[in-house]
Structure formats: C-alpha cells, structure tokens
Nucleic acid binder design. Sequence first.
RNA 1: GGCCCCGUCGUCCAGAGGCCUAGGACGCCGGCCUUUCAAGCCGGAAACGCGGGUUCGAAUCCCGUCGGGGCCA
Length: 491
Amino acid sequence: MSAAETGAVRLRIAPSPTGHLHIGNVRAALFNWLYARRRGGVFIVRIDDTDQARSDDRYIDDIIEGFRWLGLDWDEGIGVGGPHGTYRQSDRFDRYRAAAETLLEAGRAYYDFRSAEELEKLRRQAQAERKPPGYYIRRPPDADFEAGRRRAEAGERGVIRFSTPGRPVEFTDLVRGEVRFEPDAIDDFVMLRSDGSPTYHLASTVDDIDYRITHVARGEDLLSSTPKHILLTEALGAEWPVYAHLPLLFGTDRRKLSKRHGDTALRAYREGGYLAPAVFNYMSLLGWSMGSDDEIFGREEAAAAFDLTAVQKSPAVFDAEKLAWMNGVYMRAMAGGEFVDLAVGCIEQDLGRGLDEDERRRLAGLAPLVQERVKLTTEVAPAVRFLFTDVSYEERAWRKVMKGEAARALEAAHEALRALEDWTTAGIEQALRAVLAAEGLSARKGLQPIRVAITGSNISPPLFESLAALPQGAAIDRIAAASERLARTDS
RNA sequence: GGCCCCGUCGUCCAGAGGCCUAGGACGCCGGCCUUUCAAGCCGGAAACGCGGGUUCGAAUCCCGUCGGGGCCA
C-alpha cells in the first residue's frame, strides 16, 4: 500500500526563482493546492534554485507574496518551515551528490567522459537512422565504476549519467490515463553535471522522495521526463508518486504561454487592478470546471469540488478579457463599505495625499455608482478624480459636446443651480430638468455639456449624483468656467 | 528528425451511446432601459477537424487521417 493510500496526501509546487512568478506556475500551484485541500492533505512550496547563476532571492519574495496574495497557503516550505530543512534546493547539493554516489556504487549510474563532439556524432547517427535522439547515448563498454572514479579523482571532467534499465515504463496519470514509454524513448540522462551541480531530474526526484510527496501535479511539458523520474525513484529504493500532468496554458497564438505573450507575471495582475478572488476563480477554470455551469465560486467551494481526474486534457488559452469581466463581477459583489475603503485607497494614492472627512463622505456618496461601472481597481481613481481636483477638459469630449445649444444649457443650468436651496440629488435633478424643459432642450442635449463642465469628460458617473457629491459653490463655478471658455472659443 | 500528448462555438467550460434540431460563460451583433458610460434584461450569429468502422442509434467507443502542441536534439 502506498503512502498515498495510507496517509495524508502531500503535494508540492516547486517554482524556480529565475523571474517573476509566472501564471503558468500559479495555475499549477492552484491545482495542487485545491487537491491537497480537497484531500485534507499537505501543500508544500519548495524553491527549485539549482540554477544558481539565474536564481535571485528577490524572486523568492515575489513567489511567496504571489501565493499569499491568492490565498494559496502552504503547510510546509519556504517561509513557513517544516521538517525538511530550508526547502531550497541550493542547500541540498550534498544530498543530491550522495544520491548520485549511491547509484554509482549500485551500478545504476556511470561516469561519462565523452566529449560534446562525440555525443553529437552519436546523436546525428541516431537521427540518420531515424531513431530516438537518446537512443545511442548509452553506457559505454569501458565505463566501469572504479575506472570512472579514478579518472574523476584525477581531475578529468565528466558527467554522471543514470543507467536506464532498458525496459518500458508504464504508469497511470490522473489526467491522461495509462501512459507507456518504450525503452528507446528513455535516454541515459545526466544527473550530475561536470561542475558537480545536479540536473532538474535528480534534484526534483530526490526532493520528491525525501519530502514524501504522494502526488506530483505539474505541467504537461514534463510528461516525457516522467519515465526518467520513475526509474530514478525506483533505483533509489522509493515508491513513485501518483502523477497528474496538467494541460499547458497557451497564449492567443496557441503556444506555451511565455514572456512574449504580454502579462505572464502574476505581479502584473496584482498591480494592474485585479482582485485576488477573481484571479483565483478565473485560473481555476482553465482546464477544470465544477462539472456544471457554475462559473463564479470561491476557494472553499472549489476545493470541495476539485478532483485531478476531472482536469481537461487539452491546453487552455488564457483569455485576459474574460478575466477582466470576472474581475468586474467581483468588484460589483463587494460589500459597499468594502468598496468605499478600496476607493479611498485608490484615490489617495492617485492624488498623493489623504482625504479629509468631508471628502470621504462625498466619495462614499458616489461610490456605489462607480462600483457598478468599473472592472479593475485601476479604473476607480480616474472615475472620481473630478471630485477632488480642478477639471481638465478632455479635448475630444469638449468638441463633441460644446456646440449648438450647449451655451444655453450651461447658462440655464448655472442660474438654476445657483438659486437651488435643496443641494441633493433629487433637488438638482428636479431643478435641471425643469429648466431644460423650459428651454426646450432634451435631456441628452442639455445634460452632456453640464457633464463635461463638471467632470471634464463625456463619460462619468451619473450626473445628478456627481453634482450632489460636489460642493454647490464648486459646481456652479465649474459651469460658469465652462460657459466662459465656450464663449471665448466661439468668437 | 525521434518520442509523446491533444482535437466540442473565436476563447474557456458542460457533454462520459439515445435527455443534443449540442448547453453555459466571455467576446461579438441587435434591441430594451437610459442624462453619458457601465450594469441589468431580452434576442441573435457562432462548434462536435476529416474519413471509415462498431451499433437500431455516436460529440461520446475503435481505426485511420489531418491539424495543433510539448519534450529531446
């Protein structure tokens, strides 16, 4: 009976700190998290920093912040500790070398001193014979353990390769079903490079064994490496985990999502006005669904329903537009007070100063109308900025609206609003409608110039509420200013 | 080049032999509402890659083919 059956499941995500946390990694992490939570198991975050030249600790912070932001909490690993050390591969090189040594002594690995040219020749030969590329990379006849060791100790540079047993590997993948690889498809892969550093195959497999990982859910790009990992695990005397190879995330060109597809860093979304629950919700739908038409759901709901066997086999294209729509759904679903707090934060940052009591009150009055109009948090400040700064007219808006009857509408509005005693939405609406009717102007024609005068734009929150959110004096002044400008530009 | 994976509307997902004249969502188009913009509501266009087979019956099973992708080089 395997560990997966007897104990709690243990899953992990192992990002490399060689760049900002990538959304492909985020999706993989999310599925691992969902499955761990569903099974009441353990979720681990390990840092795969074997490539020390390209790794940078600031990216570790980015990874930690990113996962935390999304609410993917982990039970062991970087930042939270656990029984297995630092959860950084760079601290475990000795362990990997020891594992390689064990295999060497057991005859399951060998030193390989062949030059790149020799190997290249073998590859070309394999290609000419239409054989798998790794076909000819096999243990050379003279590769005996003692001789290899002597040459290595004498300072000769060579790699240590795993010696594949020459039999097919079969396993059941939770997503793909039965998978089989023929011996020819599995080459004698390098475990330790000539500089003594471990390859991904070695480090990752040894870690999965040591951390007693029961389920490995990772991108499909690693499917063809899986037989190597299985063989290696066996050779090291351990039981291999259950594998689940997740469909890749594609860009709109249907290629593996990468830098050139624009925003592939989670950070870009965190800073671009997206809400964590929306990102979580959207990403969970990439390759999975609840099995119903329900698309809007939270973390706990998803965790309760998740199963790796229900994951889609085909790749998913990341659709930024649908994410934006979903973000809008979450924006609108926010409690009113919560949104006001968010809006205050947005505008204060935009203004570079705090809001006073009166300003907050005015913002809060308009907030519900803004809330249902924005998709991203970054849209909040531009929508309410007119409340706190002098208007600057959008030239296009001005030209579109300030013509024809605009002057009359502004003058009439100016007069009516100056005389108005009841400075409320209802009062303002009543006064303006009355005066427009008296002038014979339609609401459409009469109100747009006022909107531009007040907000600077022809697109804004509803006008009467916007006016009410402004002090009466300021509103009147703005209309007068627009009137003047119109008179100037007309003549 | 070799091996492997995948194939339902433009995109994401539902569909696990009859409930499918294929459903939902985003996007798109049209309408309603309306002071702008959104939101909301109503309606529309839009897909089972292709060819065989199995079966009374196939989007669902099998084979082939085409197409796409991944890995190694």
